[in-house]
Amino acid sequence: MDDLVLQTITRILMPFIQVYGIFVIVNGHLSPGGGFAGGTILGASVILYALTFNVGAAEDLYPDDLAEAVESSSVLIFVLVGLFAILMGANFLTNIGIFPSPETGTLFTGGFVTPLTLAIGVKVASTVITLFTHLFGEKKP
């Protein structure tokens, strides 16, 4: 789709979409949203890019190798955060008392929730993108 208008608008829009996605992820523990919704929004921005330019460009932007690493490591982060609590002598995924949670009213009051939603968001975004590029580009799995 070689449409100059679309491409330009996409270029302008993408950062905004991505910032919104990150906002939703990071604010997951305070306001509606969270890793899943935010991740999808993040992924959607790349899909938009792929649609207006071409799939190859999106693949260059977000290569498969990176996707594999990101998807694996995000799950690992989740599990390791959980195991960290065990290491500190509490139950799996214990938050209170193990992770620092600053005073109420600031952004990062969730303890480990923020890193976890970040991991989820990245994982979801990556999955959405690879799903799309694999389906659209018909690459070998």
């Binding site: 939703v24 899943f36 919704a37 999808t40 899909i47 799309f132």
Partner: peptide, 15 residues
């Protein structure tokens, strides 16, 4: 609602 809008209306449709 947010997830439904993003996934149901957006990504799924695209796929």
């Amino acid at each position: 609602a947010m997830a439904e809008a993003a996934i149901g209306a957006g990504v799924t449709t695209l796929l």
